[in-house]
Computed example of a mutant assay.
Amino acid sequence: GISTAQLVQQEEIVQTLLPAQFMNGNIHIPVAVQTVGGTYNTTQSVHIWDPSHQQSQGEDGQEQQLHLFPSGSAQGQVETEADGQAPTEILVPISLKPEEGLEVWRFWAKKKNDELSKQEQTKLAPIGRRQPLRFQEDLVSSAVAELNLGLSLMTQEARGAEEEELAPDVLYYVFLCIQKYLYENERVDDIFSDPYYTRFCESLHKLLHGWKPSIHPLGYIIPSHVTEEMLWECKQLGAHSPSTLLTTLMYFNTKYFRLITPEHHMRVAFSKVLRHSRKNPTNAKDKATSIRLLKVQSQHSSGQKGTDDMYEEQIEDPENPLRCPIKLYDFYLFKCPQSVKGRSDAYYMTPEPVVAPNSPMWYSSQPLSSQQVEQMLSRIIVVREIQEIIGTAPESSS
């Protein structure tokens, strides 16, 4: 069992450390937890390795970190936080920490390199002088091919400091941190869409495909680690490149049109997404623009005039033009070939392999394959805001 002294000590850590970490914005333990009898109880015992905690040893030689115990390790009364708030609000990360991505990569690379050295000792020296494969611990100077391979292997092998498996959404969060770290250090690679990263993208898809948030033993849903804001933060949403813009349209179509399967998205077409302007009845000059998608029509409604509730809608965001669904839709149309704009069988067109920001054409007249749509969508579905929509959607049970 756990001694009273240890319980008190853990309670103190909870009281002092968590609020402090929250205040600094440094939430080092990105997992939703509930205090149960003084220990942390989660469905996944997750601990993202944090070097600043590595050195602090308690008097009894145990590290004074918040070890996240596997669920069921502590019985006792359920205690909620002092202010009565669910701790999920505090403990899920709110923004990307690029250095956290770097640490997980380093931790993995060190371990992988040791493993490779051991393997080489047991094998005969290869003929010729091929350099043995090693992963750089410094992400920025890693060659593209090496990074692609390393990130791909990480989807299966990366572990937390306690050797525990990281949940798919936690790993996705780590890769988004890595992406942000690369951008902040002048690397322009987009690990989620550049053709050189195909192997990683396929591995990530295998990891995320079919992911659902887990339910805590106490009955609440542990929210996804990945939020929409994080995607804007590391340039996975916006008009930064043809593939980012495409992802953004798919994201908005998932969020506002509630298209949550690849089949739903494959049915969208230029001819079905319509611009709509509404006058303000009190001020004729004041118009609100939206784009609409007709919901799947039932048989009897085909002859009727469309009413407002037959459409799903995306409304403009005049406060934030760079994130405005209408502006991004217009920009997409502007960058698509004229020949595709009336199509009734396609909407997501394949990005041209090489474009400059000012190229008149960003997309070919070839639609994305259903496989490509599925891969992009699997990264969108994991986002917390989309999960909340799926959770409230009437068809979510199907």
Rank of each mutant, 00 (worst) to 15 (best):
L166E: 05
A161L: 13
L7A: 08
H264N: 10
E316M: 05
A82E: 06
T39I: 07
L274A: 09
L322I: 01
S378A: 15
W105P: 01
H240W: 15
R187H: 12
I315F: 15
K212T: 10
L377T: 00
W108D: 02
V92S: 11
H209K: 06
S214M: 10
Q136R: 03
I215F: 13
D309Y: 07
D190Q: 02
E202Y: 11
W105E: 02
R130V: 14
A5H: 01
Q6G: 06
L153G: 02
A393C: 07
G76I: 00
L207I: 00
R323S: 14
E184R: 04
A5M: 03
I326E: 05
A158H: 09
A158W: 14
D309G: 05
P223I: 09
L377G: 03
L218C: 02
F334H: 12
V268W: 03
W362F: 09
Q314C: 12
Y347P: 00
G1S: 07
L274M: 10
I215K: 06
Q21M: 14
P30R: 00
R159A: 14
P321A: 13
H28C: 09
Q57K: 01
E385S: 03
V92D: 06
Q6N: 07
R159W: 12
I260D: 04
S378H: 05
G72K: 07
K235R: 08
E137R: 04
Q338W: 12
L293I: 02
Q299P: 00
P217K: 04
V340Y: 12
N358G: 11
S117K: 10
Q34E: 13
G72W: 14
Q10D: 12
P98R: 00
Y40F: 15
S370Q: 10
R292T: 02
H264I: 01
Q236I: 01
G38T: 06
N41H: 07
D114C: 03
E163N: 13
P360G: 08
P281E: 11
R258V: 09
K255I: 09
V188L: 13
I13S: 10
E184N: 14
S193Y: 13
D83A: 10
C177H: 06
G128Q: 03
K341Q: 12
V296N: 04
Q366T: 09
Y183H: 10
R278F: 15
E115A: 10
K110M: 06
V373Y: 00
P217F: 14
E99R: 00
S277K: 04
Q366D: 08
A109H: 02
P132V: 04
G1I: 03
P318V: 09
V355M: 08
Q44F: 14
